[in-house]
Design a protein around this nucleic acid. Sequence first.
DNA 1: CGCCGAGTTGAACTGAATCAAGAAACGTGG
DNA 2: CCACGTTTCTTGATTCAGTTCAACTCGGCG
Lengths: 191, 191
Amino acid sequence: MQIEDIISKIESNYITLSQNCKEEIIKTSRIITPLKDTKLVLEGQNADKTYFIAKGAARAFYLKDGKDITDWFAFENNFICSINSFFQFVPSPHFIETLEESILLELSRENILELSEKHIEFDRLGKIIITKTMLQLQQRISSIQFETAQQKYKNLLEIEPNITQRVALTHIASYLGITLETLSRIRNPKK
Amino acid sequence: MQIEDIISKIESNYITLSQNCKEEIIKTSRIITPLKDTKLVLEGQNADKTYFIAKGAARAFYLKDGKDITDWFAFENNFICSINSFFQFVPSPHFIETLEESILLELSRENILELSEKHIEFDRLGKIIITKTMLQLQQRISSIQFETAQQKYKNLLEIEPNITQRVALTHIASYLGITLETLSRIRNPKK
DNA sequence: CGCCGAGTTGAACTGAATCAAGAAACGTGG
DNA sequence: CCACGTTTCTTGATTCAGTTCAACTCGGCG
């Protein structure tokens, strides 16, 4: 996959970019093609990169009392970063790792800020992504807050129907805020 | 309170605005001074307004199986809107109401879009607010997801130390995703 | 004063967690 | 392509935090 293909994926999923802007993206970004289970960000790092997933999947997770808790999944045509670190310039509480062999476009915060200054469509792209993320988080809060384990799992399947084929159940369970055992029982009702 | 005072509150809490931009805000916005318990948004409405709280407090809530569930609190120097309706152009799932007699600056989506087009600082203001909201939601998810009722309450008090003096416990309980009874027991341990 | 909404307290119940074993599936090397 | 070890998932028994339902208290205000 060429960088032009990746950028046109961004355009068709988000917003059209000017030729100038695209050229500058090409100059300042880089493509990486990590294998499955590659760490993109480590806890404690200044995680000043954002990744666009052209192909593959990734997750953000953190360790709470030694337990691996998934906080976010991202698949094709979505962006992933350590939002705390990226936006607040603090050490990342999260790890980010690929869940499959992937093709990613890596952009640094510095380049993103510069691109946003120079190209109004790029600035708008940023706003769109942040808004989308905000709405997804809001959605997730209602789901976590007021639904049973069963309903939360169903909701997730509606949003990401194939997630069970791509992601380990342990990660799905921790993302839903339930234990692996409970998830297993939900999936195999009284047998 | 004059509109100039309100705008300077926005500037000191968020970002400096050009003279032009401020004049246009003055022309297109309006100040409202609702009493306590005034509904600003009703469920089902196209809620295309955002409110800046110069003084007072408000909450967004919805009815889940007839039960009143608080989704968001906002106090002085913060903005509140029905984020689903405002950003996605759908009927609002939320009500929004004041919790105290308040002074609010009301801006319509239309005016906000126009201001964002014309004034880059205003556009940036929007981005700052959305980013802040996103980070707060993210914060809230970890709190809801992996902490005991007790810890969630403590966390809230750290962020909003005076909330119990300003907001009914029922609303705090539903915001935390616990029952009023549980909240009461947390506040009055084994007596 | 008496009522009413908000908060408290008590007792029984329950959904999900925890702890503990075992079964499948997976992959690596012989 | 099979044997073995490792990781992932399932199943069962027990426990517990928080809910539910119900009764009671308190403070404000009409």
